[in-house]
Simulated assay, not measured.
Amino acid sequence: MDRLATRTLRLAGPRRDRAVSAAAEWNRGMAALAAGRADTALGLLARLDERGHDAAHPIVALSAGLTGAETARR
């Protein structure tokens, strides 16, 4: 999963496609959470709402908000 997300980020970055980058970061965060790495997951999910980050996307950040809250709780 992480290999595919990394490749997606590498391809989407030069195209400045924030929606695709945000989806890839969200998937990386979910994979980290499923693997029990809550701190890593929280860092990845925080990028979705980080001003200036290539993966920042307000709609994806809003959608991932509950996941972020669950991750922070862990």
Rank of each mutant, 00 (worst) to 15 (best):
residue 73 R to C: 00
residue 10 R to M: 14
residue 51 R to I: 11
residue 33 L to M: 13
residue 66 L to T: 04
residue 22 A to S: 06
residue 9 L to Y: 06
residue 2 D to L: 04
residue 45 L to H: 00
residue 69 A to M: 06
residue 3 R to F: 14
residue 38 A to R: 00
residue 27 N to E: 04
residue 37 R to A: 14
residue 10 R to K: 15
residue 63 S to P: 10
residue 71 T to V: 03
residue 47 R to Q: 05
residue 35 A to M: 10
residue 37 R to P: 07
residue 13 G to Q: 08
residue 11 L to T: 14
residue 40 T to Y: 09
residue 67 T to S: 08
residue 71 T to C: 06
residue 39 D to Q: 08
residue 36 G to W: 06
residue 5 A to W: 03
residue 73 R to F: 02
residue 66 L to F: 15
residue 8 T to A: 15
residue 52 G to T: 04
residue 36 G to E: 08
residue 74 R to D: 01
residue 58 P to A: 05
residue 27 N to C: 11
residue 56 A to W: 02
residue 19 A to V: 14
residue 34 A to Y: 08
residue 73 R to P: 02
residue 58 P to R: 03
residue 58 P to D: 10
residue 30 M to C: 12
residue 28 R to H: 00
residue 22 A to N: 04
residue 67 T to F: 07
residue 29 G to C: 01
residue 60 V to E: 01
residue 52 G to V: 01
residue 16 R to M: 13
residue 20 V to E: 12
residue 17 D to L: 09
residue 7 R to E: 15
residue 47 R to I: 05
residue 63 S to G: 15
residue 68 G to D: 09
residue 23 A to P: 07
residue 37 R to M: 14
residue 68 G to A: 12
residue 40 T to Q: 14
residue 57 H to V: 01
residue 5 A to P: 00
residue 49 D to A: 04
residue 72 A to I: 06
residue 54 D to I: 15
residue 35 A to R: 13
residue 4 L to C: 13
residue 3 R to P: 09
residue 69 A to V: 15
residue 6 T to C: 13
residue 64 A to V: 05
residue 31 A to V: 06
residue 30 M to E: 12
residue 59 I to G: 15
residue 58 P to S: 07
residue 38 A to T: 05
residue 20 V to Y: 10
residue 16 R to Y: 04
residue 29 G to Q: 05
residue 48 L to V: 01
residue 53 H to N: 06
residue 46 A to T: 13
residue 2 D to H: 04
residue 25 E to P: 06
residue 58 P to C: 00
residue 8 T to F: 11
residue 71 T to K: 02
residue 29 G to A: 07
residue 74 R to F: 01
residue 61 A to M: 01
residue 61 A to T: 05
residue 32 A to T: 00
residue 32 A to M: 11
residue 67 T to K: 12
residue 14 P to C: 04
residue 43 G to N: 01
residue 9 L to V: 02
residue 14 P to H: 07
residue 30 M to K: 11
residue 5 A to H: 02
residue 35 A to Q: 06
residue 18 R to I: 10
residue 68 G to S: 10
residue 11 L to N: 15
residue 56 A to C: 10
residue 67 T to A: 11
residue 25 E to F: 09
residue 47 R to K: 02
residue 3 R to W: 10
residue 21 S to K: 10
residue 1 M to Q: 09
residue 34 A to G: 13
residue 13 G to K: 11
residue 38 A to G: 03
residue 29 G to S: 06
residue 35 A to D: 12
residue 26 W to M: 10
residue 41 A to N: 03
residue 25 E to I: 00
residue 62 L to G: 10
residue 6 T to E: 07
residue 46 A to L: 08
residue 71 T to A: 03
residue 35 A to W: 04
residue 58 P to K: 05
residue 43 G to H: 02
residue 14 P to Q: 11
residue 27 N to R: 00
residue 29 G to W: 09
residue 20 V to L: 14
residue 49 D to T: 06
residue 52 G to Y: 01
residue 34 A to H: 15
residue 15 R to P: 08
residue 52 G to N: 03
residue 60 V to I: 12
residue 33 L to R: 11
residue 16 R to W: 04
residue 56 A to Q: 07
residue 23 A to E: 09
residue 2 D to K: 00
residue 41 A to I: 09
residue 18 R to S: 12
residue 31 A to I: 05
residue 59 I to R: 15
residue 41 A to W: 03
residue 48 L to G: 05
residue 60 V to H: 07
residue 50 E to S: 02
residue 68 G to E: 03
residue 54 D to P: 13
